Amino acid sequence: MNNPHFIMPKVRIVVADASRARLFSTDSPKGDLTEVDTLLNPEARLHDGDLTTDRPGRQADSMNGGRSAMEEHTEPKEVEAQKFARELADNLEHSRNQGQVEKLYIAAPPKFLGELRKHMKPELKAIVAEEIGKDLSQMNPREMRKHFPERIK
């Protein structure tokens, strides 16, 4: 049924990895993707050694005859990915609170997608229409569009 008064919900398509998130919109269910915003995390592209010079101390571990880290160690790139996932989730939550987004489609590598989910509030998770666990970040919008449902609504 063609309804001339049909109003497209406020949809955002998020294509992200640990270093960049691209946000797209579309003006029709089968329409092309239009990039509306980009969030960057340049630290994700640095080598671990460039991110930190402070390593946890080590001590002798007489029980195992070896050495162990005095604290749990998380790789610096992983820490940066976690920060970026939180920043992206906060950005999307802000857009949702402002009434700018009513439905989300998200594509990201599985590890980053999982990290993003950890930082999403239940209200934000509730508007996610589809998640794609693939890295589409290097594709152009026309190539990306093929990975999302034919009708985005």
Rank of each mutant, 00 (worst) to 15 (best):
K146I: 09
A126T: 05
Q82Y: 04
V79H: 08
V15W: 06
E43D: 15
E71I: 11
M139G: 01
Q138M: 11
A81F: 04
R22I: 05
E130G: 04
D61F: 00
P141T: 02
D32Q: 12
D50I: 05
A60H: 04
L51D: 01
G66V: 01
E115R: 06
L40S: 15
A107L: 00
I7K: 15
V15R: 10
Q82M: 10
L88H: 01
E130C: 10
A81V: 10
T53L: 07
L116G: 04
L39C: 06
T52M: 01
V36G: 08
K30L: 07
D54I: 02
A81R: 07
N64L: 13
G65E: 11
P9H: 04
T52D: 10
L92I: 06
I13T: 11
P42I: 15
P4I: 03
L51H: 04
N41F: 09
G99V: 06
H147Y: 14
G99R: 12
E93D: 12
L113P: 02
P122S: 02
I132D: 05
N64G: 08
P9C: 09
A85S: 08
D27F: 00
K77L: 12
H147D: 14
I106Y: 01
E93M: 06
L88Q: 06
R142Q: 04
R20I: 15
D50H: 10
M139H: 07
L124E: 10
R142K: 11
F24S: 11
D54E: 09
S62M: 11
T52L: 11
E80P: 00
S95P: 02
T34F: 02
N140I: 07
K125P: 00
M120Y: 05
L88V: 15
V101W: 02
Q59A: 08
L124Y: 03
R142M: 06
E35G: 01
L39H: 03
L33Y: 02
F112M: 11
P141L: 08
H94N: 12
L40V: 14
P109C: 05
H47G: 06
H119Y: 13
L39P: 06
S137F: 10
P110W: 05
M139S: 03
H119R: 13
T26M: 05
E80Q: 12
G99S: 12
P122A: 05
V79L: 13
K118S: 10
E150L: 13
L92E: 07
F148V: 13
K153C: 01
E72S: 11
A60Y: 05
P109N: 07
I13D: 00
I152L: 15
S62Y: 10
E115A: 11
S19G: 10
K30C: 10
P141M: 12
L51G: 00
P76S: 11
R20T: 15
F112G: 13
P9K: 04
D61E: 15
P122V: 09
A85Y: 03
E75G: 08
R151A: 13
